[in-house]
Design a protein around this nucleic acid. Structure first.
Lengths: 185, 185
DNA sequence: AGCAGGTGTTTTACTAGTGAAACACCAGAG
DNA sequence: CTCTGGTGTTTCACTAGTAAAACACCTGCT
């Protein structure tokens, strides 16, 4: 621990990636404590997690202004982008959340007049949920603002980098979805 | 809506990124409903969020086996990797969580004998938290398994792609941290 | 000394989410 | 018709997190 230099240490960075973000610091600490472990995956996964956290925080601003949580907006967005009614179960799958969570959110959104439900005529277990006009208008009003925030958040990357990043994340996501979201029979 | 093709539509993909992950489908839906909006940012941010969710889910497996939540492991990990005692406030900053959350977690981890606290001698408001031997052993036992899961999750990408992805995410993260984590005085 | 304002931590009251069980219903077998 | 097993949805009991207030203590000013 004598005279430790806080800056990047040459020769310690095989991938040539000498960032000075928070994740780089964390990885450096782990390497110092466990020099034997391969910390490579942390550089990707740690950054993905941290980027996700920061981006969500940034995006929450326009939503809070509209009195919506991210989860509520996701639900409304699913209805808006599919363009048709969805059942609670479909909404759960579409928004990657549990059925119980969807039930709760639908209750609130219905009370606020943003969605409406009707029972299925043939199968009385299932409900069909659709946006009200107010719900549709709300989503359409928020979306451009949301995208503007996102564009601003990404403005530090130039266009080719953005394309490249999207492509690499797409590759990764295909792998993850194939592996983790068990092959549907 | 007549004869809509579910596959990628040629000419609609300026970045040349014709993925078939879930995000690509979502973006396609939005484009159909709002052809005027630039959905570019979604391709990155949507994928970051989705990757983060899937990766966390995957990583939670080894943690649950050890009876820890991700948040608890983050806290223990912060103590382990810094190598010295931390105050609750420092732990909160280090793990990006609220002070109240740290208080709660410390209470549980102390009861389980994984961390210990002692009061500061000069300033009796502050506490110093350190890992017990059991805590250190637990982290050291989990970490390799955790990294193995991470390596497996990323195994779909070849080495140069991994380096490239880490670098791009690092660039993005530097931007985001500079922008969103207000310039510290 | 004594008070004012600031900081580190905990408590409080509350919210959103979870898994498991409950409920309501359908569809097929006998 | 009436079971039986399965599926869509909701309820229940509980957990983890949050923001704001409370608390405990320090520091500097007078």
């Amino acid at each position: 621990m004598t005279a430790t230099d806080r800056r990047a240490v040459p020769g310690n960075d095989p991938a040539g990636t000498a960032k000075n973000d928070t994740v780089a610091g964390v990885v450096r600490q782990w390497r110092a404590v466990h020099p034997d472990l391969d910390t490579g995956p942390m550089e990707i996964i740690g950054r993905i997690n941290r980027c996700a956290a920061l981006l969500q925080q940034a995006e929450d601003a326009p939503l809070r202004r509209a009195g919506l949580s991210r989860a509520e907006f996701d639900l409304l967005g699913a209805l808006r982008r599919t363009g048709h009614e969805l059942t609670p179960g479909e909404l759960a799958r579409e928004t990657f959340s549990s059925g119980a969570a969807v039930t709760k959110r639908l209750k609130q959104l219905t009370e606020r007049g943003l969605v409406e439900r009707r029972g299925d005529t043939r199968d009385r277990r299932v409900a069909h949920v659709r946006l009200t006009d107010a719900g549709r208008d709300l989503v359409d009003g928020i979306l451009p603002e949301q995208l503007a925030y996102e564009t601003a958040a990404l403005s530090g990357l130039d266009t080719p980098d953005r394309g490249h990043l999207a492509a690499l994340l797409g590759d990764l996501l295909v792998q993850l979805e194939g592996r983790l979201v068990a092959p549907r029979g």
